Amino acid sequence: MTTSFVPLVLLGGLTAAGVYLLLERNLTRMLLGLLLISNAINLLILVVGGRSGSPPIRGRSSNNSSIIADPLAQAMILTAIVITMGVAAFILAMNYRSYRLTTEEEVSDDPEDAKVSELAAKDSAAVEEDVAHPDPARDTDGPDELDALPGYEGSK
């Protein structure tokens, strides 16, 4: 099976545009980027699914073709379309709620989130100082206290 190079380049362009839009801070552009990526993936599944042919029903043929079309690619695309529309509806609801609360469509940095990340950085530095480091002189291959536990056979 050979696939034309042109559709793959176009799919790469669609995906690149979708990723670019998805990385924006504007919720509407994020939604458009998600839709572009999902449509590019659906088209990729369709291209990779192979050539069209006879319907996958016994006894039916179309244009006297000996090739039978693969219905799995089409079923996967229909499922992906339904899932994408559900996610798009959720993002639109989030966009509407955000606009009603802040009258802005741009997602800004959350000051509380910045405070939490600063505290986490300070705590991780403090925890790093409190970590007990093993004594290299005591680290031997000889038996330890844990070797005496029932059912422990040690390293043989």
Rank of each mutant, 00 (worst) to 15 (best):
A80L: 13
S61P: 02
V82F: 15
M85W: 11
S61L: 09
P71V: 12
A80K: 04
A88D: 03
I81R: 05
T84F: 05
R60N: 05
F90N: 10
A73E: 00
M76V: 06
S61D: 14
L78D: 10
S65A: 15
A88N: 01
V82I: 15
N64Y: 09
L72A: 15
L92T: 12
A89R: 06
V82G: 08
A73S: 14
R60L: 13
I77H: 03
I81P: 01
A75I: 12
F90I: 12
T84Q: 07
I68T: 15
V82Q: 09
I91S: 03
V87I: 13
A80C: 05
A75P: 04
N64H: 10
L92Q: 08
F90E: 09
A89F: 14
A80D: 04
R60G: 01
R60W: 12
V82S: 14
V82N: 07
M85N: 06
L78T: 07
I91L: 14
R58K: 12
M85V: 10
A89Y: 13
A88C: 05
I81C: 10
A73T: 00
I57Q: 09
G59Y: 10
L72D: 07
I91R: 02
V82R: 08
I91T: 01
A88I: 01
S65V: 10
S66D: 15
A75E: 12
S62D: 06
R60C: 04
L78N: 11
D70I: 07
S62F: 13
I91K: 02
A73D: 03
S66V: 10
S66Q: 12
S62R: 04
